[in-house]
């Protein structure tokens, strides 16, 4: 992070120098190595899938994968993150159904969990907004959005190992968590 910060004004300085020096050919030689250095120093973004475990940045500046072991660790972590994401999605859905089915079937007798019959009263928007289930859902929503963006960014590295980890984790999570999923209007789905 600090690398990036320091190099920015540095580069500007040299840019200014070269702009002035266009009339002066001697100073021009001075600027060329620095621009080359800044080009090679930055991490190039791969735009095609590739298998590699050398110098793979993973979301944060401190997390750079350099060995096969680190890649294995990252694979497991990403796998479980994707699995957790699927579980969270399905948990939110079932929580939502538990807390809101009764409101949808407003003023209708609804069969309760153990054969009882519930009569639901109508709640206003304000009451709903301040209710615990909704606040809890909002917190879960934040977690879900953060994880979904993380997974998107991990997939975006184009590193084939990590992409496989995301896909396999999502598949495994779906397999284990959604076996009793019911058909509802799916509004918890986020960006993929």
């Amino acid at each position: 992070m600090s690398h990036e910060h320091h190099s920015m004004p540095h580069m500007d300085h040299h840019m200014n120098g070269s702009a002035i020096s266009t009339a002066d050919p001697h100073a021009h030689h001075h600027t060329t190595p620095s621009t080359e250095h800044s080009h090679g120093g930055g991490m190039m973004m791969d735009m095609t899938f590739h298998f590699s475990y050398k110098n793979v940045p993973l979301l944060f500046s401190g997390l750079i994968i350099n060995t096969a072991g680190e890649m294995a660790g990252a694979f497991v972590a990403v796998f479980f993150l994707a699995m957790f994401y699927e579980g969270l999605k399905i948990a939110r859905e079932s929580l939502l159904r538990k807390s809101q089915v009764s409101i949808r079937y407003n003023s209708m007798p609804v069969p309760g969990p153990n054969g009882t019959v519930l009569m639901e009263t109508h709640k206003t928007v304000g009451q709903q907004m301040l209710s615990f289930p909704h606040i809890f859902q909002t917190v879960l929503h934040i977690i879900q959005v953060v994880i979904s963006y993380f997974l998107m960014l991990i997939f975006m590295t184009y590193n084939a190992y990590l992409c496989i980890a995301v896909a396999a984790g999502a598949g495994t999570g779906y397999f284990f968590f959604s076996w009793k999923k019911a058909v509802v209007v799916d509004i918890t789905e986020h960006c993929h």
Binding site: Q128, M129, Q137, H141
Partner: peptide, 16 residues
């Protein structure tokens, strides 16, 4: 993230 949270918090109760 904050925008998504605010949007969900306000919009979802309006659904019902």
């Amino acid at each position: 993230i904050v925008g998504s949270a605010i949007g969900y918090y306000i919009a979802y109760p309006l659904l019902n």
